[in-house]
Amino acid sequence: MSLPTIGVTMGDAAGVGPEITVAALLDPEITSTCRAVVIGDTARLRRGAQALGLEAEFNEITDPNDARTEAGVINVINLGLIPEDLPFGELSAVAGDAAFQYIRVACELAEAGSIQAICTAPLNKSALHSAGHKYPGHTELLAELTNTEEVSMMLSTPKLRVIHVTTHIGLIDAIAKIEPGLVERTIRRGHAALRGAGITEPRIGVAAINPHAGENGLFGYDEEALKIAPAVDAARADGIDAEGPLPADTLFFLAGRGDYDLVVAQYHDQGHGPIKVLGIEAGVNITVGLPVPRTSVDHGTAFDIAGKGVVDTRSMVEAMRQAIVLAPVHA
């Protein structure tokens, strides 16, 4: 079996993306288990390597099939969009547009079958918007570029995995958007993703919206019975091991000790808070439902430390590991 080809987008060039990308692609475990191709800017990656005190050979290619798999070699599809004098740590529309173009090219390569997974370094939403690309984040951008109607955000750490029913919308809007069909589809996407990662019978806990799961209607407006319970029942009827709606505070404790393989969170902060407490440095963001798996770090562009060689690179290494695990096996 051949190694999977992973497309790696460099992220915002003014942030820590160039540094963490180089560090991850020089990791011996990564270089021995995949063929990695960066979509980015060679000169900026070279500056990232210099900041970290690392040496690498940059192999510029146009076709992922031409990628080399030797230790110390970083394959780059060089779009050449970043000026040499672009400063680190400053908001830039040029960097925002470049980050968009890296994602666009990665999606084109994925749809052509040239790469089997995408791993993304962080982009900056304000820079993206200042360049005219009005997306809430990577997830929505990837969905549109791949013509995918609906995707889910999954966060993974060594102790906890969470998939979200809603993400980048206000809390009132999130509660309005939650309905049985969306909850059920989220459960099913999470179940399929975990099975694809080798967990044959995932145990899934589904969080409630209200404190104490509504306390039989005492809190809230019976959202648990109307919006969540029918979805859990439908999933269970198909043989999926799902339980809920469960009080979120108890559920996250149980999942953290290993009782569940996945928590279905109903809104952004319900899922993100516990994940970041348990291990943001090794956290991975996984987009579920795209034509190919996509993983990313669970942190931002870190403008305050960009270009200084002090960034923690563990999350990007783990994101690459997850992309390799999730990539379809190619003969």
Rank of each mutant, 00 (worst) to 15 (best):
residue 19 E to D: 12
residue 101 Q to W: 09
residue 327 A to F: 06
residue 154 M to G: 04
residue 110 A to F: 07
residue 51 A to N: 10
residue 304 D to P: 13
residue 207 A to P: 05
residue 61 I to P: 14
residue 17 G to Q: 13
residue 154 M to E: 07
residue 305 I to C: 04
residue 263 V to M: 05
residue 136 P to T: 12
residue 121 A to K: 11
residue 79 L to C: 06
residue 211 P to F: 05
residue 18 P to E: 10
residue 206 V to N: 10
residue 285 N to K: 02
residue 140 E to M: 07
residue 240 I to W: 01
residue 248 A to G: 07
residue 213 A to H: 08
residue 199 I to W: 01
residue 46 R to Q: 15
residue 51 A to T: 10
residue 100 F to V: 06
residue 204 I to P: 01
residue 189 R to D: 00
residue 109 L to V: 04
residue 275 I to A: 07
residue 128 L to F: 04
residue 50 Q to S: 13
residue 234 A to W: 02
residue 248 A to P: 05
residue 140 E to R: 02
residue 173 D to E: 15
residue 270 Q to R: 02
residue 21 T to L: 03
residue 207 A to D: 03
residue 269 D to Y: 08
residue 273 G to I: 15
residue 155 L to V: 11
residue 320 M to C: 15
residue 51 A to S: 15
residue 55 E to W: 00
residue 210 N to W: 00
residue 272 H to V: 15
residue 211 P to L: 09
residue 81 L to R: 14
residue 55 E to A: 13
residue 186 T to E: 05
residue 313 T to V: 14
residue 211 P to C: 09
residue 242 A to T: 03
residue 38 V to C: 12
residue 120 T to R: 04
residue 254 L to D: 13
residue 234 A to D: 03
residue 296 S to H: 08
residue 265 A to N: 07
residue 206 V to T: 11
residue 162 V to I: 15
residue 11 G to V: 05
residue 227 K to W: 03
residue 325 V to S: 08
residue 46 R to V: 12
residue 92 S to V: 09
residue 197 A to F: 05
residue 171 L to G: 04
residue 152 S to E: 01
residue 18 P to W: 05
residue 275 I to S: 01
residue 2 S to V: 07
residue 163 I to E: 00
residue 137 G to L: 10
residue 296 S to G: 11
residue 182 L to F: 00
residue 210 N to R: 01
residue 316 M to L: 07
residue 250 T to R: 05
residue 39 I to Q: 02
residue 115 I to C: 07
residue 107 C to K: 04
residue 13 A to N: 10
residue 23 A to G: 11
residue 249 D to W: 13
residue 186 T to K: 02
residue 108 E to K: 15
residue 48 G to H: 10
residue 108 E to C: 10
residue 96 G to H: 08
residue 176 A to E: 14
residue 186 T to I: 09
residue 22 V to K: 02
residue 137 G to T: 09
residue 120 T to D: 06
residue 26 L to T: 11
residue 119 C to A: 15
residue 197 A to D: 12
residue 185 R to L: 04
residue 239 G to C: 08
residue 52 L to H: 05
residue 41 D to Q: 03
residue 62 T to S: 12
residue 66 D to T: 07
residue 22 V to Q: 01
residue 80 G to T: 03
residue 290 L to N: 05
residue 252 F to W: 08
residue 31 T to K: 12
residue 173 D to G: 12
residue 142 L to A: 12
residue 62 T to A: 09
residue 47 R to P: 00
residue 178 I to W: 07
residue 286 I to S: 02
residue 106 A to F: 08
residue 90 E to K: 15
residue 204 I to R: 01
residue 180 P to V: 06
